[in-house]
Design a protein around this nucleic acid. Sequence first.
DNA 1: AGTTGCGGGCCCT
DNA 2: AGGGCCCGCAACT
Length: 392
Amino acid sequence: MLKGADEAAVEQENSASPHGEMTSWDINDIKLPQDVRQIDWFQEWPDSYVKHIYSSEDKNAQRHHSSWAMRNTNNHNSRILKKSCLGVVVCGNDCSTSDGRKIYLRPAICDKARQKQQRKCCPNCNGPLKLLSCRGHGGYPVTNFWRHEGQFIFFQSKGAHDHPRPETKLEAEARRSIHKAQTAFSASSIRLKRIQEIESLTGAMPMPEALPLLLSKPDAYVIPANFKGHLSKSSQEPTLSSCSGQLLYPRAAGEDEGSGEALTWSQSPSLGRIPSAERLCSGPAVPCTAPSHQHCAHFSTQHVLPVTKGGHGSFRPNTGPLGDGSCGEKSLLTYSSSCLSLPPYPAPQSGPCSRVSGAPLRGSEGDMSEGGPQVGLNYCHNDMVFNLYPLR
DNA sequence: AGTTGCGGGCCCT
DNA sequence: AGGGCCCGCAACT
């Protein structure tokens, strides 16, 4: 089954990765190569028939992360973890936000949660939500395989996603948090109103200053504590302050990433990749730190990434020399690291930074990363969060 | 409440 | 046998 369409794909599969010698393996092979000379940066949006070899110390790889909504699939092989794509949740009315973006929600991974999710309404138009299943692998969902072998984590993707990208996990979490905050906010404003009424009856002076921040700006939401948790567990304050001027407001229309991304996707249904994208940057390990102002002004959700479908988002080894979350345990920062790859102007997303050409293998990862990148990580997230705004 | 991984089981080819 | 999928469970966040 699946054969015909796949065979051709399998052929490109073997050349999908820049380091040709490494792609001769298959995840099902009894023995996987151990003479790996080059490991890959984590790919946030693996697509098509690609293979990657990550360091076993790469936290994202360890967690089998993907920005696609992947659910675990039992393949009755405990050595190989298999996941299949759940697609994307779209608005049944095919509505667009005021700035032209489409609604691409992340399907809940848990079956029950997903059913519950589908009973909810479109956050934009209140229309029904619709789950767009992934059928990119011969009519079946795209599957991802993970296998830990020695010092490496082997990743293989089968199938090309035939649907737009959903929100990343972080965005979905952020949206939930915003929703919670919104709920809490309404509840607390009612309480406050009552308190004020009582106070006015008793003659006590209300203390506006004591009211929650931004009450006067109903469109701007206070970041709830739990929301902050989603943003970062370690180091977001500085960035919040550094960006707050803009971030506290909904992004201006036109800085659309959602529709742009969708457009890109629809224009290049499945093979609109830029195969050489990842090779564009063969230079230094950290060549692509975008101008800092960009972080606030333009970056937003993953959709803003100038991605061509399949231009794999790459998680920089964000995290510190060993990609282990030294600048933020949670995926947040690691996810956001994809922002770092962004050049000031749309270009293949992952490409430039996704890989250290000839990067030494483990043992000298100290060469990767360092310095600059981490500084900007949070910018992306904070901005991301506020760019979820139109979806409220 | 939701995510993730595991594994039993069923169905289909 | 291999792949897809459903289900429940447990650990974790």
